[in-house]
Structure formats: C-alpha cells, structure tokens
Amino acid sequence: MAKPKLALYWASSCGGCEIAVLDIQEKILDVANAFDIVFWPVAMDFKYDDVRKMEDKSIDLCLFNGAIRNSENAELAHLLRAKSKALVAFGSCAHEGCIPALANLTTKDAILKWVYKDSPSTVSNNGAVYPQTHTKMPEGEIEIPEMWETVKSLDQVIDVDYYVPGCPPQPFQIWNVIEYILSGKPLPPKGSVLGADEKTCCDECPRERKEKKIKKFFRPYEILSNPNECLLDQGIICMGPATRSGCGALCTKANMPCRGCYGAPPNVVDQGAKMVSALSSVVDSQDPNEIDEILNQIVDPLGTFYRFSMAHSILKRVDKI
C-alpha cells in the first residue's frame, strides 16, 4: 500500500514550529518511514510548481505553520488547501496569529516607515526606498509578494480542519497527534483542537494558589518571586487563567509567567477579554482612582493579553492611526 502523503509548510513564522517537529527526535525517522513527504521547503528541495502539479486532495495531511501576512502566504494557503485532504493550522501563528499578528497593533505604513527609513540601524537608505511589488530591471520585471495591512490566522483565509496550538507546539504533543493519525482511528470532528487539553494552564501548574488580592503588578524582572507560589498571586501577570492547557505549564515551572501561547481555553472566544475578566477579579480595590493606579502598572495590556491571539481577537486590530 502506498504511504500516506505528508506536506509541511511555513508561511509567516519564525521557524520554531519546524524545529519543534525535529524535536520529536528519533521519532522523526518513524515519520519519514510512515509518510511519503511530498513538500517541506525548510528541509527538502521542493518548488511551488511541484505542488501546483499535484492532483487535488492528493496530500493526506498538511501541517501548515505561520500566519498570513502577505500575498505569497495566502497563495500557498489556497494551493495547499486545494491539494490536501486534512489541513492543520499548526502552531500559534497559523492558529491565531501569534507574534506576527502583533503587527495589527500598528499599521503597515508605520512598520515600513520604521524599517526602511526611521530605525537607527537604517543607514544606507537616505532616499527612503520602499519595497515595491513590481520593479522593472534591464533583465525584466521582478515581482515580490505584497505585504498585507492586517495579519490573519490561517482560518481567516481558508478552511481549516484541525488546530494544533502552541508557540511552538510541544514535541510530545506533536508526536501524540502524529501517532493518533497513524493509528488509523477515526479522525476527530472537524475544527477540533489537537495536541492540547480542555482545561486551563492553571490546572496543570504545580504552584500553590491562595486568594488573590493584588495592589501592585510587577514585571518578572522587578521581583524575586517565590518559586512555589502562584505568580499571579505575587502580582506578576500570568496568562495561565486565560490559556488552554496542554504544554504542562512549562513556563511557570521555569519561574516565568505563562505568556498564553496555547491560546484561549475551550469556550473562550477572546483570550484578552478573559484576562480582563480574570484580572478584574483579583485587583484589591473598590476605589475608582486606586483601581486606575493599580491597572496603570500593567505595561502594554494589548500586547500582553493578546501576545498570541490578536488575529483571533473579537476586535481584530487597532483602528488606523
């Protein structure tokens, strides 16, 4: 029997998801044995044209990581959707926008202006030359992808079958997913989140929780935290209550607050809204002025509460400034 066909692609991402796949270590050989890898640009030499020539629905499983922030990302998303039976939004960027979608807190113009003109490291660009999608050269016209104003998650561009959360997904969870698919068991319902659990990060966290009463917030470097007590109890913003379980509370075990990379827990629409709600319960004041004083200590609330889920947030992006 022919082996099932596997494709892996990266759109707007850092490459960490690819490393996480390799971090399943020697099991990667099992993957290579079990699947016929037909497309994996980061590891093997394939061309987009190879994919274009494939029959529709001929790829059995496509693990797509990366957000959609330009026309090339979108083109490949559409192409791989057409060619794949099961398409997985793999990792936080494809799932809910992740770090690339923090660009939605500003504008495309502001980003380009900073990068190509104003940033201190931009030295050789006195003419402020901006990237153009089409440039005429003696040899012919050059085309590069068009950057989008708003970064999107994969499911905002194409139809997605499954989600594997995490920045990056934890290797043991990746292996769980692959093992499940290889087992031949019936696939879970479309839209399922795979490689994660159904609770919150706090449920996996070993730290001791007491009643939370917060008068002051700290950034992690501003305080020597107690390693056994809940970080939020100590005034460090920890996204644990607003984050899906599945990683094993990796960060809090390493003395860092959860940043929220596994995304919103089940039945939560908006991770930031959930965090607003959680923090409102623990701030210890009934006086409007004091409440403001305490809340003003939270630096960059949007970037903190939506560090990974801006694209999936209800309001999606900031207004054009």
């Binding site: 923090l279 409102s280 403001d292 609330p301 949007l302 207004d319």
Partner: peptide, 20 residues
C-alpha cells in the same frame, strides 16, 4: 458591581489602545 467597576476601567484602558 465592584468587579464590574474594575472591568470597566480595564476595558477603557484596552479600548484606548484599540483606538476606540
């Protein structure tokens, strides 16, 4: 209602950032 008071303050802070 005290919880609502804190939520409203937090929401206003967030709204400002969104440009609302």
């Amino acid at each position: 209602n005290y919880k609502t008071l804190r939520r409203a303050h937090m929401l206003k802070k967030i709204m400002r950032k969104y440009g609302i």
